[in-house]
């Protein structure tokens, strides 16, 4: 089943902001950098999990339309 709690778009957005953070820093604070790397690694793990193969669900609407 899909992990509904994972909002891939949001997670990728957060990941992107971490990438941008590294781009923007002229001099990276190592401690803060490490925190960002840890956060990024966790997000990557979550996203990878969500992107792994998940079966689709088809549900037919029970309405009559003749």
């Amino acid at each position: 089943m899909t992990d509904k709690k994972v909002n891939l778009k949001e997670s990728l957005g957060k990941l992107n902001s971490i990438v941008e953070w590294f781009d923007e820093q002229e001099e990276v604070d190592v401690e803060l950098g490490l925190v960002k790397v840890k956060e990024g690694a966790e997000l990557i793990k979550i996203c990878r999990k969500r992107l792994s193969e998940v079966e689709n669900e088809f549900k037919e609407i029970q309405r009559e339309k003749e």
């Binding site: 990728l12 990941l15 971490i18």
Partner: peptide
């Protein structure tokens, strides 16, 4: 977008770790 997310993820991963590696190297 789902397909692209995979490669986007790879790119982000590379970028983050490479950036941090550079930081460590600099230090």
């Amino acid at each position: 977008s789902w397909k692209n997310a995979g490669s986007k993820l790879d790119m982000s991963e590379q970028k983050i770790f490479r950036s941090f590696q550079n930081v460590i190297q600099e230090k």
